[in-house]
Amino acid sequence: MNSEYFKKVHKWGAIWNYASLIAMCAIPVVMSIVLKAWPDLNALAKTLAVLIPLYWVTAFVEIATYVPMLGAGGTYLSFITGNISNLKLPCGLNAMEGAKVKPNTEEGEVISTISIAVSAITTTVVIAAGVLLFAPVLPKITAEGSVFKSAFENVLPALFGALGAGYFIKHWKIAIAPMIGGCIILIFAPKMQVGILMFITIVISIISAMIIHRDLWYDDFKKMKSKS
C-alpha cells in the first residue's frame, strides 16, 4: 500500500467531512433565522432522547464495518452522502467485484471511491431532477394500485440477490451459517436495525470461514512459527 496516497485520502476526506459538518449544522440554523422560529426545546430533547441512543451507537458499529470494506475515500464519501447500506455499500462492492480488485488494496481504494462518488452524483441528480420536474407524478409510482409499487418496495431483495449470487455459489459453504444465523436472529428480533444485524452476520460468516478453511490457518500458523 502506498501510504503517501492513503495519507492524502485521509486529509481530503477529513477536510470534506468537516466542511459537510458545518453545512449540516448551518441548515437548521438558517431555517430558524429565515422562519424566525427556534425549535421547541422540550420536543427536541424528547426526540433526541430516542434518536441518539438508537443511531449514535449504531454509528460505531457501522464505521467499523464499512471502513475495511469500502476503504478511506469510499467511507468518507458514503457517510457524507448517506444511504450507505441500501446503496453506497453494495455499489462499491459491486464495482470492486466487477473490476476484479480487492478491498484494502490501492486498486480497491480507487475503484471503490470512483464508484461511490458516481453513485452520489447519480442519486443527487435523480433526486434533484425528480423534485424539480416530476414531483406531482412521483407519488403515483408507489400509490396503491400502481403497477410499479411492488417493484419499488422490493428494491433491496433484488439488489442484494443479484449482488450476492456469484459469491453465494462460489462460497456456498461459508454462506450457510450467516444466512441461518441472520434468519434465527430475525425470528426473535424481526425489526433489528440492519447495521447491527450486518455486524453479527459478518462475525458469524468470518468464524464459519475460519472453521471451513482451518487447514489454511494451520498452514499459515506453521509458516509463521517456522519463520520465528
Partner: peptide, 17 residues
C-alpha cells in the same frame, strides 16, 4: 469474501424473515 457474504446475508435474511 466472508465479510462480503456476511453483509449480503444480513439483507437476504431480512427478505426471508
Amino acid at each position: 469474501a466472508a465479510a462480503f457474504i456476511g453483509i449480503i446475508s444480513a439483507f437476504l435474511s431480512r427478505s426471508i424473515a
